[in-house]
Every structure is written in C-alpha cells, then in structure tokens.
Design a protein around this nucleic acid. Structure first.
Lengths: 194, 194
DNA sequence: GTCTATACCTGGATAGAC
DNA sequence: GTCTATCCAGGTATAGAC
C-alpha cells in the first residue's frame, strides 16, 4: 500500500487510458509507454492487470467522494449540491462527448466481461446514489429519496450516453437545463407525490 | 451477399454474443462453438471479424426497422407508437438488466475502440431517433420534434444503464411509468413550450 | 462448403541481471 | 526499483486437403 511515485503514475495513466480506451483494450504496453517505464517494471508494482483495475477504481471512488463531500463541506445547501451534481455534465462536457461517462462505461464493460470488479464499479455508482439520496432526504424527502436519486442518476447516464453518440453541444446543455428545471419541481416535496 | 444457411447462423450467433459479451471479448472460437462449425470455415463466409460486425449491425438495423415500421403498419397512432417504444424496456427487461441496451452498449464499446463501425452503431441510434421524431411530428410537434426524440432516447438509455447496474425489478417499471406519464404531457403540443 | 493444420502476432506474466 | 529477455496462452487469419 506504499504510495510510491511510480505506482501513482501508473494508476494515473491507467485511470485515463481505461476511461479513454476501455479496460480490455488498454494493454500494459500502452500504460508503460505513457508512464515511460518498461513493461517488466510493471510487475514490481502490480502483479496482475486486475490489481491495477482495483487501484483505479479505488482512486476514482476516493476522487469522487472528495468532490461530493467537498460541496457539502463548502456549506452548499442540498439543492445547490444537487445542482452541482447536474453541472458535472457541463463541466466535463468535452470528455463526456468523447468518451462517455467514466462510471457508466466502466460498469458496462466490466459487466459484459463478467469481471470480478463489476462489484467495484457498482460501488462507484453506489457512492453517487447514496450521496444523492442523502441530499434529497436533507431536502425533506422521505421514503422516495432513493427513487429520486435513481431517477437523477438515470437521467444523467442517459444524457451522457447520447452526448457520446451525438457530440452536439446543444443537446447536453438542453438536458442539463431540463434536469435543473426538474430539480425545481422536487425542491418542494409537497409538489411531489410519494 | 448470398444468404447461405451457415452464414445466417453465424450472424445470429455473433449478434447474440456481441450483445452478451461485447464485440472485442467475443472470439471466433466462441461463435464457431455456438454455430457448431470449425474456425477455419469461418473465413469462407467472412474474411475478417469486422465483416461479421458489419453484418450484425445490418441485421440489427433491419430487425429494429421492421419492428418500428410494423407498429406503424398495424395502424397504431403516433402516441401508441411512442408507448410501444417505451414498452421495449418492459418487454426486454430481463435482457436489459443482464446486458444493458444492445444499441447503447455496442456504441459505447466501438466508440472506445475507435472502431470504423462506430458509424454503423450510430446509424442504429439514428434509426430510432428519426422514427421517434416522425412520431412527434405526426403528433403535431414541429421544430421541437427532434429534441423530444433525443430526450426520450436519452431517458431510455439512462434507464437501461442503471437497470443493468442495479438489477432491480421495481426501478425499470418506475422509469417506464414516468416516461409514459411524460408522454401524456407531450401528447398535447399546446402544453409544451417550443 | 467444410474441415485440419498451422503461421503469426499481441498481450499478460515470469526470471533474473543490474 | 528498473531493466531485458523470454515464455506462454489465446486470437486472427491463411493454406490446402477433402
């Protein structure tokens, strides 16, 4: 678990390449080339490719957790937090159009491969799901908070998928606007049937 | 282009395996095993793996086109047609929970591979997009018909993605209900701002 | 049209020198 | 900690017999 500099570089490079090219399609040679080390050196830091995947997923969970909790720590209201979540689609628009959602596409790939780390990828989804649910609960929603979280997660996944298929600036902006408008309608729980 | 029985069997098997395991992760040996032929025999029918992919995409386009136009030919109203589209999520729920959306996951994979047939996968999306747009136009929508088509496509993609991540019966049913309710709100163009 | 045999390459993984 | 050399499995593709 010692975080050597080379190890960190490997995880950083793998994180990017797994996102841009997918896990299966990224070879050790690819990662080694980016990091600037030999393929053999790899195995000093990671015994198998799966170990790198585990490290990448851990890294992503840590990053996203820090981002989400950072908003809370900044004192944002539940509603502002949800708006910030939706804004991810705007902030990362260029990457999403090029490569899709890092969470969704990783899960999709590992699911098809029947990879043991499918559970790890689901944990990434869980992180968002639970955080969103907490925000809806803080907003006054009770039993339906998890359903609202799933609904918002689904919409953002769908927007990311289609933005990837149709790299059209206007589409993603429109989806974000609609999600923000939807957020207004659920901001007052009285307007939403449970 | 002669549609020999063996060739058809290969396309059928590849279609299923590309969906269940993904394109890259499906080997010739896998397909050959399902069809019950030798690997060598393969190359009599298809010179490369990409040629099989082209045939699979053609097959999927043909199938989906027949399904969509079949609804129109049955005399369904634009609104009934859109409801039938939404119902795909219910009819194919089991497969979607297990493998995701055949259109979305194929596009996502080919996009990451930078595969030439990414365009073919997009054509599959286009088929749905244009058909949906036509239904919204027939319903009285004008300039916003395409945006509505994209919106519905995005929601169904998102629902499929999350249903794959969380194989929960209730979630997909809820998403379908919400899309049907949304359909009610757009059935009368007067209620929708352009 | 279908088979077996095989060439060839890529990519994951190991051994051992430095 | 990093390197080179090498092994081995699996996957695409070809040749040629039947």
């Amino acid at each position: 678990m010692a975080a050597s500099a080379t190890r960190e570089k490997i995880v950083t490079a793998a994180d990017r390449l797994f996102y841009e090219r997918g896990f299966e399609y990224t070879s050790f040679a690819d990662v080694a080339a980016v990091v600037g080390i030999s393929r053999g050196n790899f195995y000093y830091h990671f015994r198998t490719k799966d170990e790198i995947l585990v490290a990448v997923i851990e890294r992503r969970i840590k990053d996203r957790h820090a981002m989400l909790e950072g908003w809370v720590a900044q004192g944002k209201s539940p509603r502002e937090c949800l708006a910030s979540f939706i804004s991810i689609l705007t902030v990362n628009a260029a990457k999403i159009r090029a490569y899709g959602c890092p969470v969704g596409t990783l899960f999709s790939e590992l699911s098809k491969l029947n990879h043991p780390q499918e559970a790890g990828a689901r944990a990434l989804f869980d992180l968002f799901r639970h955080w969103l649910r907490q925000r809806f609960e803080d907003m006054g929603h009770g039993a339906e908070a998890d359903a609202l979280a799933m609904q918002l997660l689904a919409r953002s996944q769908g927007a990311a998928s289609l933005a990837n298929a149709y790299p059209d600036d206007a589409f993603l902006a429109r989806e974000v606007d609609q999600m923000m408008a939807w957020l207004d309608t659920v901001a007052d729980p009285a307007t939403i049937p449970s």
